[in-house]
């Protein structure tokens, strides 16, 4: 993140308790790329727990996503025009890029003699800009944004199968299940997270006493995000590495829910720097 960027962003992937206990690697990965003029890309990938090389799959998927989606931004001159594409165009471009990532991952699996399925991971790609957001994803995880009215909104619906631990991966036949959205409004903050952070940061499994029903409001939790936005706004004197280190510590044991979480945790939090 350059010093002159419009955005202040923190990001980290930390290993979950279960993976520490079992000597497994962190299977989450994330990255951001600052493009220009307040445009950038944030990517989160979450490796499948039961797939042997999903840590490598997640890392490679994040790397490939940054390359392909940056090319799309440049090629379509969105930065120069400072304009977001129409929903239909974004749907098409996002799907094309996700399919390219899958193809490249196939090549990676062959070159490294790793079974393709062993690289399985989910993916969320967010393009942030001064004029709004573009998002696309395969599988679970969450994403949200803070609008001009200072209300937190969700951006995606996590893909879930019948059972709680079923989802879809970049290695799956995902063509009909990709969700892409254009958020065509000025926003002041965003978040992208793997499902290891969802219980900490989103209202996602509440109980309605009147209806006697459990439900998923898919709502970013303001009491989680607002204090962190405030804290982030006060870290101007730190470089990116220092900010990320503090963020990483927070994700490891910042509150009881984060501390007790067994899954790997990734959270990218960005906000418009106050000018």
């Amino acid at each position: 993140m350059s010093k002159n960027s419009l955005w202040t962003v923190v990001y980290a992937s930390v290993i979950g308790n279960l993976h520490v206990r079992e000597g497994m690697p962190c299977q989450d990965a994330c990255a951001i790329k600052d493009l220009a003029e307040g445009w950038g890309i944030a990517v989160v990938a979450d490796g499948a727990g039961s797939c042997q090389h999903s840590d490598k799959g997640a890392q490679q998927t994040v790397y490939l996503a940054i390359q392909h989606f940056a090319n799309t931004v440049y090629k379509n001159q969105w930065i120069e025009k400072n304009n977001l594409p129409a929903q239909s165009q974004w749907d098409r471009l996002a799907l094309e890029n996700l399919m390219r990532i899958r193809d490249d991952l196939q090549t990676f699996s062959k070159q490294n003699q790793l079974p393709f399925e062993s690289l399985s991971c989910t993916i969320i790609v967010l393009i942030y800009s001064p004029v709004g957001l573009l998002i696309t994803h395969i599988g679970d995880g969450r994403a949200g944004y803070l609008n001009a009215q200072e209300e937190w909104q969700s951006m995606i619906t996590p893909f879930r199968g019948e059972e709680a631990n079923q989802t879809l991966f970049i290695t799956s036949d995902f063509e009909k299940e990709v969700e892409s959205r254009v958020i065509n409004e000025k926003i002041s903050a965003f978040c992208v997270l793997s499902d290891g952070c969802e219980k900490s940061a989103f209202e996602c499994n509440l109980f309605d006493k009147e209806k006697n029903l459990y439900y998923d409001p898919n709502r970013p939790y303001p009491k989680f995000f607002n204090p962190n936005i405030l804290a982030l706004s006060k870290l101007d004197n730190m470089n990116q590495e220092q900010k990320n280190l503090l963020w990483q510590q927070f994700l490891i044991e910042g509150n009881a829910q984060l501390k007790n979480e067994t899954d790997d945790k990734t959270l990218i939090l960005g906000m418009i720097a106050k000018v």
């Binding site: 939790y221 989680f224 509150n255």
Partner: peptide
């Protein structure tokens, strides 16, 4: 650490 924030009361999925 300047970062903080409360987590909501979510229920767990069942097995």
């Amino acid at each position: 650490n300047p970062f903080g924030g409360e987590s909501p009361e979510n229920y767990e999925q069942k097995c």
